[in-house]
Design a protein around this nucleic acid. Sequence first.
DNA 1: GGCTGAAATCTGATATACCAGATGTCACAC
DNA 2: GTGTGACATCTGGTATATCAGATTTCAGCC
Lengths: 236, 236
Amino acid sequence: MAETDQSTARAAQFAKIDPAFQVTVRDHVYRTVRSAILSGSFATGEKLNERGLAEQFGVSTTPVKEALRQLETEGLVEALPRRGIVIRFSSQWAEEMILARAALESMIAHLAAKRIGKQAKAELQSVADLMKKATASGDADRLIELNEMFHDQIHDCSRCTYLAKLIERQQFYDASIRRVIHLDPAERQKALEEHLAIAQAIIAGDSDLAERVMRDHVVRSGDTYLNIVFGKQEDI
Amino acid sequence: MAETDQSTARAAQFAKIDPAFQVTVRDHVYRTVRSAILSGSFATGEKLNERGLAEQFGVSTTPVKEALRQLETEGLVEALPRRGIVIRFSSQWAEEMILARAALESMIAHLAAKRIGKQAKAELQSVADLMKKATASGDADRLIELNEMFHDQIHDCSRCTYLAKLIERQQFYDASIRRVIHLDPAERQKALEEHLAIAQAIIAGDSDLAERVMRDHVVRSGDTYLNIVFGKQEDI
DNA sequence: GGCTGAAATCTGATATACCAGATGTCACAC
DNA sequence: GTGTGACATCTGGTATATCAGATTTCAGCC
């Protein structure tokens, strides 16, 4: 009996591993090619060769085809049947990805403000407080981490799994670029103010305000990224 | 010389065929399974079997795998590596797809109001006028057609290709269900009023108003669809 | 009787072979 | 020189075989 209890207790210590965590070749190819496209390794209109990619990765064409299918569904490449895969991603695409994110994040912020519970309010406030500290101390990596946590919390509050997944696909920059941004004190300060305003609006349950400040935040910071990645500035 | 001109003129008469128009097995499987999922042929959580599907379609597993990969990227199914494909779609998913559409369509309406040109204004107005007539005469099929034309025009005005593509994937009902909706006179009238308001706002260049009325339109009509497909009502 | 673990089996993941449409090349006819 | 068309070739699409993780089954043990 004691033994049973003990073993149960021990088993409970281990978090369930996410089955989707496993890495497949397909997934590796997908991530690598996606990242390469988003970082501008391929010119818009350039063709991708299935056999060539398979050879470069040292794998068969099967997982490559599947990875390309995912990229196609995401809109980053276009498949012309029996003719080839063409890169679709461009600076315009990136701009629109920001707009999509802005639209979806503001929708989710709206819902979060309506649906947030007491405990979640406290947690959101606590992350906001941590952001304030990290901004003051200039810890860029910590800020990136908190940033992600912050948006994830809002996603959780909204209880919108699908929307959260959709938003994830609208990201065209990676951690290294984020780091560049967060190293700039002025940018850090601006982002902090926006985050605090978002947190305040959501905690206050002001869904319309939350929607607006979130949208402005995503668009503004998105433009900053655009500027860095493509060296140009565009407004809505 | 005359011959050259003539042949050029003749060639110009034929529209270029879209290379993506070609139907592949993969695409057929994709569309069929997608439609089956959206129409509720599979319960949420139900497993799909690659070999089984391939056998049902009388094809090999290769195109089936690719089709499933597309559905996975769309979020309709989830792939658990080496364990199987699970249906993710549910009424909650459908609700969130509407919210996504509302967010994206309102963003696109906002941009359309800002970017629309003189000729496009006239065209949008003319479609709106046709809608008025079709609503009065109760021509459901014609209304469905005009509806699509209307939204496509707005997409074109916004000059947002990526967003337009993204919106297309947020549709969880097909033509037959649309038809049911448009057969109801009250619904037709309501939709007409909304469409006219949207057209007016965009033509007037009032981007904020366009955004708001578009969002309300998508959410309201979406709820009507939800009601029909899932027999329940949900609000934001 | 209930638990353990090895074997059978199911299923997705990957590799390979082959098919067919699309494109490029080039000799030939005018 | 220009245009035509057969042929070589490239490339994605599909089929099939094999590999390996996951699940199930069930005999054997406590």
